[in-house]
Amino acid sequence: MKKQLALLIVSGVLANAGGFNPSMQGYIDSLKVEAKKSNNSFADFNAKRGELIFTSKHIGKRGREISCASCHGANLSLSSQNAFTNKSIEPLSPRTNPKRLTNVQDVQKWLKRNFNDVYKREGTPQEKGDVLYYIKSK
């Protein structure tokens, strides 16, 4: 048990080098457990796969071809605009906007909504993790 705890702390600290706070890291870890359940060969999330999910276009809920970048922009360190309401959106990059990816409830809320809006379905745990790694890398 002690060993497991130590391992958990070490992995937590290591992961924190990537910069997730403890509650977000907990969410990432739970997504990993879920991802592994449906994909035996799953090792870790991948920012490159996340980028593809983020930038590829789909006929969204409103019947228009959009990607996540349609509203969040191609450069995540810049402000952007909601493509439907014109309301400005603060940068998604946690480096420019440190509030991003810090609140698990907010992150869950937006992942659910935005996958539905762009993909017309909820994201799988692996897709969610990949996208979060991609945003984190920006």
Binding site: K61, R62, G63, F84, K109, K112, R113, N114, N116, D117
Partner: peptide, 8 residues
């Protein structure tokens, strides 16, 4: 209005 705006 055709968006998912669901909340807990």
């Amino acid at each position: 209005f055709k968006d998912d705006a669901s909340l807990d």
